[in-house]
């Protein structure tokens, strides 16, 4: 069967993550949440530790830790901490504590590098099912709340006057982000998840005129980057996750230069 090929499974996994990351990535760019994404993603390692220590599925552990981190950071930023400082502390504290905590797990062999940079070539059928379920969940959630999310992103007061609760929309986005991190961990790893969010969306930006077009084009860019990166990893024996990010960055440079030449 076709899914027997680990390369096909890897490709499907990469495409699934790229599709799910696109709409969230657009909002991360518009709302300037890149650092927030980093903090949340770095909390994934704590989730891995939690899962391995309790015997829960890793995806569930990551989902819990990422959600908890996102909510904590959002609350801290709301309490008058400079958002930048709060996020900087949270992002790196989570990463360091996560690595330290992992080292305390005795009797469990942990592939730290895999969690940091992803291990797409070892994706199983179960992983694929989790990834595509998560992707469907994310895309469905964002599509359902699309108008409210856009209004809340444009202006919170405008949203409130239109009967949209901007805090609730922010929560929707946070949850979607946590799900994405849970399913993307295996593909690009905790350190590069934010790259898969931000880079395709930024690459799409110069070429589009509407928010919808940006999300769709980001999905296309992410997909191309995932497949190209995988191809490069196969041929040049480079690490797959970072290769996908490099491919996305190359596309970003090309679209930015094209836009500059067109003289926008």
């Amino acid at each position: 069967m076709i899914l027997d090929s680990f390369l096909i499974r890897a490709a499907l996994a990469g495409v699934g993550v790229a599709l799910a990351a696109a709409p969230i990535g657009a909002f991360v760019v518009w709302r300037r949440m890149a650092y927030f994404g980093d903090a949340t993603a770095h909390a994934a390692l704590l989730g891995v530790t939690l899962a391995l220590a309790t015997g829960l599925p890793v995806t569930l552990g990551v989902l819990v830790s990422a959600t908890a981190m996102a909510l904590t950071v959002a609350a801290a930023a709301g309490r008058g901490w400079a958002a930048d400082t709060a996020l900087g502390v949270a992002a790196h504290a989570a990463l360091a504590i996560g690595i330290v905590a992992l080292s305390f797990l005795h009797g469990v062999r942990v592939d730290l590098l895999g969690y940091l940079f992803g291990d797409i070539l070892s994706v199983t059928r179960t992983d694929l099912a989790v990834i595509w379920t998560g992707a469907a969940l994310i895309i469905g959630l964002v599509a359902w709340r699309w108008r409210g999310l856009l209004l809340a992103t444009l202006n919170e007061d405008l949203a409130a006057a239109s009967g949209v609760n901007p805090r609730r929309e922010g929560l929707v986005l946070t949850l979607a982000l946590a799900v994405l991190i849970a399913v993307a961990l295996k593909i690009v790893g905790t350190l590069l998840i934010t790259a898969m969010l931000v880079v395709p969306a930024a690459a799409a930006r110069p070429l589009v005129r509407t928010p919808e077009a940006m999300a769709v084009l980001a999905a296309v860019v992410g997909t191309v980057a995932a497949l190209t990166g995988l191809y490069a990893a196969w041929h040049f024996d480079t690490p797959a996750g970072p290769s996908m990010v490099v491919a996305a960055v190359v596309i970003l440079v090309v679209t930015s230069m094209a836009a500059a030449i067109r003289g926008r």
């Binding site: 518009w30 992103t153 444009l154 239109s162 930024a202 589009v208 005129r209 509407t210 928010p211």
Partner: peptide, 13 residues
């Protein structure tokens, strides 16, 4: 960073 036309903005209303 947010691409949005006037018409798309109005459609939100």
């Amino acid at each position: 960073t947010m691409p949005i036309t006037v018409d798309r903005f109005l459609a939100l209303a």
